[in-house]
Design a binder for these strands. Sequence first.
DNA 1: CCCGGTATTGTTAGCGCTCACAATACGACG
DNA 2: CGTCGTATTGTGAGCGCTAACAATACCGGG
Lengths: 357, 357
Amino acid sequence: MNPEGGVLPSPLDDVPLRRPTMEDVARAVGVSHQTVSRVLRGHPNVRDSTRAEVLRAIKDLGYRRNSSARALATSRTHTLGVVAVNTALFGPASTLAGIEEAARAEGFLTSTVNLRRLSRESLTQALEHLGEWGVEGAVVITPQRQAVVALSTMRRPFPIVTVEGGHDLDIPGVSVNQHLGARLITEHLLAAGHRTVWHVAGPQDWIEAESRMAGWRAALEDAGAEPPPPLLGDWSPLSGYRAGQQLAGQAVGAAGRATALTAVFVANDQMALGVLRAFREAGVRVPDYVAVAGFDDIPEAEYFAPPLTTVRQDFETVGKASIRLLLDRIEGNSPDEPHLVIDPSLIVRSSTATPLS
Amino acid sequence: MNPEGGVLPSPLDDVPLRRPTMEDVARAVGVSHQTVSRVLRGHPNVRDSTRAEVLRAIKDLGYRRNSSARALATSRTHTLGVVAVNTALFGPASTLAGIEEAARAEGFLTSTVNLRRLSRESLTQALEHLGEWGVEGAVVITPQRQAVVALSTMRRPFPIVTVEGGHDLDIPGVSVNQHLGARLITEHLLAAGHRTVWHVAGPQDWIEAESRMAGWRAALEDAGAEPPPPLLGDWSPLSGYRAGQQLAGQAVGAAGRATALTAVFVANDQMALGVLRAFREAGVRVPDYVAVAGFDDIPEAEYFAPPLTTVRQDFETVGKASIRLLLDRIEGNSPDEPHLVIDPSLIVRSSTATPLS
DNA sequence: CCCGGTATTGTTAGCGCTCACAATACGACG
DNA sequence: CGTCGTATTGTGAGCGCTAACAATACCGGG
């Protein structure tokens, strides 16, 4: 087609044949490569004038230090791994972003491995993969109990901290106080005059689901209310929908009983969405007949029908904290408290507004 | 507290004082390090028995090759960068996951940089950061026009491909056919008997928003329908809500006119959620009075009130394709077509069900 | 039993950087 | 003006691996 033949590389795209090295910079200034290295590493014992000349040459030549050589010489790669599942979901994705930002601020590169399932085998493979690249440590987001257990019994080739991995095992980690979140929600509902609160729980092999249920139950018991039997979902809107259909049956005709359905705490916003739909279809008006609350505060929650009362977790803080913990481990400082807990906060919207009656 | 004092490192956590090297493996077998290297690299000229012995020793010693040394010797890091904005959102997060998986399958590590804003400066910094670590190339998710423009006029220190960066510039990239998606939606609505379709658009500096609007307009014009003035949003549910309030005003009292409001195509699902809420509050029943469609197919869309007709993009394919394109560039093959386009598909749900009337 | 050829293995240099140490330079002091 | 101490700079040896080349080993044919 092109009479010239061949494809010309974009002039903006092309790379010099050989990247300049420290030696090149040194030669340009007339010093030794070591002096250049010292400038780069911020070593104090370099005369200011020399430092300036070196920096100048670095700029002129467009020198960039070679990370592989540096890593080889120092045996520090300044790279961290992250292992996560379901990264397309709001929670994991936000945590990931928080982790990456925190690591970057500390001068580390992060590499994420997304797993389809969190099995012992896939976890091993992921760590293997990261190990191949010489990560100095890894954050593993382990919301499922089995994953933490697997991790705790596994040979770990580098320091590891967990996120949402609970705090009953010996691996250091950071998690959100799910128990408190559930308690806040439940107490909020009780304070609004509900005699009890029903619960649509997440899958119980998830630590978060388990804690939320425990928090809910604890709040009820503290208040002397009777905990109705919880329904189980799998976090998906569909499972919430199914649970909602069941609950809608309860909502009618049981008024007056101690466990009459007037309030539901759903373990995440997505299931709450399903519950809302089921209620709508069944003619159960929210919040007029039944108050509904969720958990997570996904961006959509504010626009549900009606806007959803929920609990917000500060993923950025979680990310920062996990990186802090991990770097401490890598540096060899074992902090006193290997488990950090972040408190969530209650977001009240109209799905739990007290009916005027 | 602990009478023993000090924290004992977990026995599972500890790392041998010195990781075994190729030399160690070689010595164990009684061959030269080069033979070990050959086995590792799958070089053919190694006697089977030797290979077996070497593999055995590798396993016994728990040898892992040192990626930094390898990278230094080959000047290939087998690392790719990814730059993205708003990674907590469903679309970017899914694309990210697709990219990571595809890269891992090709034996590459990916490092993601999450940006808060996609400015020329932040982009430069991100690429700088990745460059420091010696990535061989990068995928940049550039949904905003200015970002692609910046990229195209920028010195690029390594091969780069864009995702959602449109295809009118000279940087290779892959994108979803937004134009087609919008057309599918619009035609679907027209086929259902609506005389025209209104549009709540995304911010017009976003390439996707622009293409969706163009596709919508083209479909209307092809059908000889009159395009009503589009409303502008910013992707957020709130902006959709505002647009919905405006539209709700249109919905009443204008029946009979060529541009009567009976159908709305909203440029993404989140804004559609806002529109639905506004309509609900204004008593505009969906789909009975007005049909509403979105774009993206976020997991929640199926449980909106009512379930939302929308367009699904195959992010996994996008990720795979972008990695393929990037690796081609890195290997020096310049494929004929530097722009790949992935077709999306229409998902019909009840928010556009034809009213019985 | 020697020769040429191929299959297999070993040897030697780096890759670009940091570290430990050696070698200067410079200034102040006696 | 020599000497010592500190500030600054240079030298050499790796880090663990790969790539090019050199050196054997082994095989069949003459």
